[in-house]
Design a protein around this nucleic acid. Structure first.
Lengths: 299, 299
DNA sequence: TAAAAATACTCCATAGGTATTTTAT
DNA sequence: ATAAAATACCTATGGAGTATTTTTA
């Protein structure tokens, strides 16, 4: 069976007259009769009751007519869907993000993207940089947000953000009176930090920042995975933490966030995707990210 | 576009290899490549990204693959549906029934029919005999239950029931002490009855029964459309009524139903359908009715 | 008898086959 | 160098056209 049979059948069912139906289909009447016969023979059921004076649908024909119309509409719809998908307006986008990834840029980007492409299904999954690389490889995500350095020729990496650090202190800490803290002042503090392995990781950024700027290695008393947990431990007095500035959104009673004295090291966030990913959805997403970044740099 | 294109596309999408896909489709590779190209040209979108070493779906191809599979499944399903409809297992059946039609046979028939053909949509509508004739003519029902005589060459009429009358009396009526009543005893009673026009009607049956058996014409003090209403008026003491015996199911406080003395006239119920209706659903329904009748005659 | 569907045949467009070329790894 | 898709060209199936017959209202 071919769509031709369905198109012909629907037209005959609408006209209930082979001659007029053939006219509408821009073919002559005999081949139309034949095609309908082929169709009936193939499905093994009479669809029309014909006399030389009248054509009417059989009950099977009525049922088949409904289905045939749905199928033809589904075909048109599939073509439109493919076109929409080619424009990146339909489909899905898998996004991986590190636990340390911005609590500020990502929500804004997601909001903008939803606004522009409401029909795209978004799949968000928290992954560290190494997991993101694997997920990009096996196509389970299209894009990842992670801390550089990310080195893989399969990927394109674009820096999206250079955030200053903030020092997270419990409200009881002697430094809370300061307006800005220098890294050197933190050399003897206990640190709450994050897993360094596998690299690249945010914890690495923190350690390198301390080593480069002030020559000390932070003494980590507690390792956690989530920003939220780190803050809880700081509030509980287990230590202090260096966090990306965007966590300012996560204010909490008993928590004080102080900026570092300039010139302060910064932590970078990058967006990673496959160089060979042709997805227009991805292209649209990257464009939205770019627009959001530019908007921030201007505003 | 033809279903061939969809079948070929789905196979290539499954194999991601034109050569193997062609093998599975029992054609050679070049025409397969061509058909996919035609498809892509027609919908104006690339569905595959090919190199000489690899074939992969574009995002548009992924979306189109889902739709193409649904369409091909819908086609198979439409064929099965038509076959089921031809066997009278799918479709709909419009049933008209007179207000006086049995409160006994019809529910039993509907129950049996539902049991055997659960996928048939039933459309029940209360119509008098004249309205049923119109509805049968314009195909808004397939079958009607009405009182004979029904004379129209377009129709086949089959008697399904010959019911005795029962006399409906208020509990306060002097005759309630009797075990059976003769029609002659009712000559001077006030009657609650039903519209005689348009014929044929149940009210005609009642009048003719009285005239033939006892030579009187019942004095109708109130005309109603529904059996339920007639019973209410009888209970309220406005008069008596001759009802078909099947209303015994509609018992009510203050209502007494008495049989007529034999030989008593009977009222017939017939089932009417179009002689030219080829519907296997109708055929199945008539068979169920027949089976129910035979079951009653035996039981 | 007339309108309309079916049949008989003819033709050609195009699906599909074979041979070969191109391309990317 | 090789595997695989694309291209070129040929063949033949079957869809569509024309002429005619059959059917029934």
């Amino acid at each position: 069976m071919e769509l031709r049979h369905l198109r012909y059948f629907v037209t005959v069912a609408e006209e209930l007259h082979f001659g007029r139906a053939a006219e509408r289909l821009f073919i002559s009447q005999p081949p139309l009769s034949q095609q309908i016969q082929h169709l009936e023979r193939e499905i093994g059921v009479a669809l029309f009751l014909r006399t030389s004076r009248s054509v009417q649908l059989t009950p099977a024909g009525e049922v088949f007519l409904r289905d045939a119309r749905l199928i033809l509409a589904a075909v048109d719809n599939a073509v439109l869907g493919a076109k929409r998908a080619a424009r990146g307006e339909e489909g899905w986008l898998g996004i991986g993000f590190a636990a340390s990834a911005t609590y500020d840029l990502l929500p804004a980007v997601l909001h903008d993207f939803r606004q522009s492409y409401p029909a795209i299904a978004l799949s968000l999954v928290e992954l560290n940089a190494a997991e993101q690389a694997v997920a990009l490889h096996d196509h389970s995500i299209h894009v990842g947000f992670a801390r550089p350095p990310i080195v893989d020729d399969l990927f394109v990496v674009a820096a999206v953000l250079k955030e200053p650090f903030v020092v997270a202190l419990p409200a009881t800490h002697p430094l809370v009176a300061s307006t800005a803290v220098s890294l050197a002042e933190l050399a003897c503090e206990d640190f709450v930090s994050f897993p360094e392995r596998p690299p690249p990781s945010y914890a690495q950024c923190v350690r390198q920042a301390c080593e480069m700027a002030s020559g000390f290695t932070p003494r980590v008393v507690q390792e956690v995975r989530e920003m939220q947990t780190a803050i809880s431990l700081v509030v509980a007095g287990l230590g202090i933490a260096l966090l990306p500035a965007s966590v300012a959104n996560l204010h909490r009673a008993g928590l004080v966030l102080l900026p570092l004295q300039e010139p302060a090291p910064r932590t970078e966030l990058a967006i990673v995707s496959r160089r060979d990913d042709p997805s227009p959805v991805l292209a649209n997403f990257l464009a939205i990210v770019q627009a959001q970044i530019e908007h921030r740099e201007r505003g």
